[in-house]
């Protein structure tokens, strides 16, 4: 078990596209377990492998209040999307920044769990937001990309300033 380092915006490695996972071995399972530990410690409700500099399509999520409903999404894909809704989002790679982002309101996604079993799941509310946010990470995308260029510049400046502190 280990607490992994989370890449911080505007790190270029956050822009890499992650590769499909071919098979789930002990090494992958250890990574998932480390990712959960890192996410809970942060604390966060979701973490994509990209954020810990592993460029494979693996996501961990737990949006429950008590932090006792872990979800593992390997090779996740959104198969149905309906409606649009705004939510305030935050990102462990962009700490301290929270902004409204519009995304699909109801989704259905397909993924593989940590034991290698494929599954489908419907989601709305916070879970729907989180799944879309994490899949974006796997595609090298960040929630700030949805904001105005003025806001993006301001956030970038703020993050670079923190880095120096």
């Amino acid at each position: 078990m280990a607490d992994l380092d989370i890449l911080i915006f505007p790190d270029a490695r956050l822009r890499q596209t992650a590769a499909q996972v071919a098979d789930i071995d002990d090494k992958k399972r250890a990574l998932v377990s480390d990712m959960f530990e890192t996410m809970y410690a942060a604390p966060g409700i979701g973490l994509a492998a990209t954020q810990v500099n592993v460029h494979e399509r693996i996501v961990v999520i737990d949006v429950s209040e008590k932090g006792n409903e872990p979800l593992t999404l390997i090779n996740p894909e959104i198969i149905v999307a309906e409606g649009r809704a705004q939510h305030e989002e935050g990102c462990l790679s962009i700490p301290g920044i929270y902004e409204q982002v519009e995304r699909d309101e109801h989704i259905k996604f397909a993924a593989i769990d940590v034991d290698g079993n494929p599954y489908e799941m419907e989601a709305e509310g916070l879970l729907a937001v989180c799944v879309q946010h994490e899949i974006d990470h796997l595609d090298g995308k960040l929630f700030v990309d949805y904001l105005s260029s003025l806001k993006q510049r301001r956030i970038k400046k703020k993050m670079l300033k923190h880095e120096k502190d």
């Binding site: 942060a42 979701g46 973490l47 999520i61 949006v63 305030e88 989002e89 935050g90 462990l92 700490p95």
Partner: peptide, 11 residues
């Protein structure tokens, strides 16, 4: 009595 906003979740 003052309350601080809960952290919007980071993901």
């Amino acid at each position: 009595r003052l309350a601080k906003a809960g952290m919007p979740a980071q993901a």
